[in-house]
Every structure is written in structure tokens, then in C-alpha cells.
Design a protein around this nucleic acid. Sequence first.
DNA 1: ATCCCTTCCTAGGAGCTCTAGGCAGAAGCC
DNA 2: GGCTTCTGCCTAGAGCTCCTAGGAAGGGAT
Lengths: 195, 195
Amino acid sequence: MVRAGLSAARLTEAAAEMADEVGFDHVTVSALARRFGVKDASLYSHVKNLRDLRVRVALLAGEQLTDRIAVAVAGRAGKEALVAFADAYRRYALDHPGRYAATQMRLTPEEAAGSVALRRSIELTYGMLHAYGLAEPDATDAGRLLRAAFHGYIHLELGEGFRHPREVQESWSRSLDALHVLLTNWPSQREEGAR
Amino acid sequence: MVRAGLSAARLTEAAAEMADEVGFDHVTVSALARRFGVKDASLYSHVKNLRDLRVRVALLAGEQLTDRIAVAVAGRAGKEALVAFADAYRRYALDHPGRYAATQMRLTPEEAAGSVALRRSIELTYGMLHAYGLAEPDATDAGRLLRAAFHGYIHLELGEGFRHPREVQESWSRSLDALHVLLTNWPSQREEGAR
DNA sequence: ATCCCTTCCTAGGAGCTCTAGGCAGAAGCC
DNA sequence: GGCTTCTGCCTAGAGCTCCTAGGAAGGGAT
């Protein structure tokens, strides 16, 4: 009998591919076992349980996404960095919807502990914002708004929440223009009033 | 034997409550049946299947959310309307996380057809943006960015994506200030350039 | 060649969705 | 009231899921 050659890494990789094909929450232990021509019980020597498998995919995807962003923003600042960051983010989500969905999982602190990707992505965001001249606490607020806008946009786009015919790419570009304007004119505490 | 008095409406209502308590994707037919002291097969006279049940919850939640927003923005314009809209949105999501998750379901056109909430919420958004002086295609772009920002923010907040200690409420307010500035200075096609 | 560890197996329990068909209240008709 | 009919809930059961326990067989070290 030939062994299938399973390992946690190979299972994670295959689960990630599967997530992109059929959706992250259709990744099941049995389906994954079927893909390897193996009984489902066999996977439990490599992976604790379904949750464990999903967390591994989430961490893998998080690293890939962060890597792409890091490459994209390297050596850029201001609007160029913003657009590069955003496009890399969106590109990854559209190329790998299942993996992207995995990155949205809520991890416990212990689960997230092993990953450097999270910390690195925060650093990348802050670096970009500092280049815009934002310091604390504005950088935190702006960072949250940026992350929210990116994620929300992708979420809507993946969910086909855009029924309106206007091209998504065009809308996305305009929104990035707008966010650029926003970051350059970020309203600090005292200067803003009603209307 | 006393009948439990099931109906599609009561099941939907109970499922919505359950979603808020245990999370939208922990709402199962069997758990719902258990809650009514009834066998799971009994629910299938009232509801086609699990998907059907979830869609009903999604439509219910969509209507509730839209109603709240409509009440909040009534008679307001500009920043007041923006803040009222956003706060109503966030309030609903925090009060009813399970129902809110349901509103994020991706519905087929047939499933969404029966609901007026979707159309109405779009009208509300456009009304607000027109008061900011935005016309097409800027209104569409700005509307998408707003929805994305709101949803993304809530998503991060519900998922405890905010590890940083800065108060969420404060961040949210600052982000709304920023979005207000953004809407009043929306960069139209020609006036924007590099940096 | 033997030992041992790892890999994969079979067997099986428990929970889930959903279908088919049955019985017994509730509602309508005479 | 007595009758039929409708419908709300039932039991039975198939098929899928996750996961545990314990067994057998391949591959490496000695």
C-alpha cells in the first residue's frame, strides 16, 4: 500500500486551495480526506480537529496577504503606498476568496500568538500613515477606518453586494482617491466643529 | 397533547433571538426545535429547510435595521444625518450581533425579491449623499465607501479585531468626523491629481 | 532481522439535515 | 351532534458530518 504522504503543512495547503474553490466554510475534514484518497479519521494524526485546520489556513493566508502587501508598498509613500497597499489587499482577496475569508476568522490570543503576520501588517499600516504625517491617536483611528473600508469593500464585492452597474474597479479607484484626500486632511481633535 | 403553536413567523423570530445569543451560524434546525420542545422534523412543515430559515432571519433583520436607520435620519441632513445613520447602524449590530450577521448573508435575487428593505436602505443612503451635494457617479462611489466603512468597522469591532486599547467609541466618532470631511470634500473626477 | 514509531486503517458514537409516512387534534359541513 | 378533511406534530430512518479508540502495516534505526 502506498502512503498518501500527509502532513500538517500539506493538509493546510490543500485546505487553502479547497477554500478558494468551494468557499472557506465548505472545507470539511471528510472532503479534505476524500481529496487525498484517505479516510477522514486519518487526518486526525496531523491536525487536532476542524478548528485547528481552519486556524492553520487562516494563519497561512494571513502571512501570504501580509507578504504581498509588504512587497507592494516597499519603497513607496503617500498616495502611491496607499494605492499599492489597497490594490495588493484587494487583489489577494479576489484571487483567493477562500483564503481571504480565512483571514477574517476570529482567533483566540493563543491561536494568533505564533504568527508574526498580524504584527507586521499593523506595522505596515502605521508606516504608511506616519508618511501621511499622522501621529497618535489619529494614526490608530485612521488605521481602523482604512482597514474597515478595505475589508468592507471586499466583502461587498465578494458578496456581490454591488447591484448597481457602475464598474467596481472604477469605484474602487475613486474611493482610494477619496481616502487619500481624507488622510491628507485628517481632522484632528480641535480643528473640527459642527458642519 | 398541547400543540406548540409553530408558524414560520414564530420560528423566524425565535431563530433571530437565538442567533443573537449563540451566533448566526450556530442556529440549527434541531436546536430551534429543542427550544420549542418539539422534534426537528416538525419544523419542516413551516420552513423549507435550513437555508430557508436563515434567509427569513436575514430578511427580518434587514427590515429591522432599515427601520431603525429610517427613524434615526428622519428630518436630518449633513453631518447630523451621517452620524445618526452610522450610529443606528452600529447600535443595531452591537445590540443584535446574530441578526446583523444574518444581514450579511448573500441572497440570490429570488430570495431578496420579496424584501423592500434593501431598496429602501439604498434610498436612505442616496438621500443622505444628495444632501451633501453629491450626484452620480460620485454618489454611488461614496455610498459604497460608506457602506464598506460601516460594515468593516462593525466587523472588526464584533470580531474584536481591535487589540489596541484606544476606546472604540472614540475611534468611531473620529472616523465619522473624518467621513464627514470626506463627503464635503469629495474629489470629483477632474480636480484630483497625484499628491 | 528486529524493534519502534508513524501512518493509515476499521469500527463506532453522537449530532446534524431532511424525507416519508402515520396519528390525532382542530376546523368546516351537514 | 357526527362526519370528513386539513394540518400540526409525530416516529422511523437515510445520509452526511466530526471525532475517538484501538489495530495493522510501512519505514527507519539498531
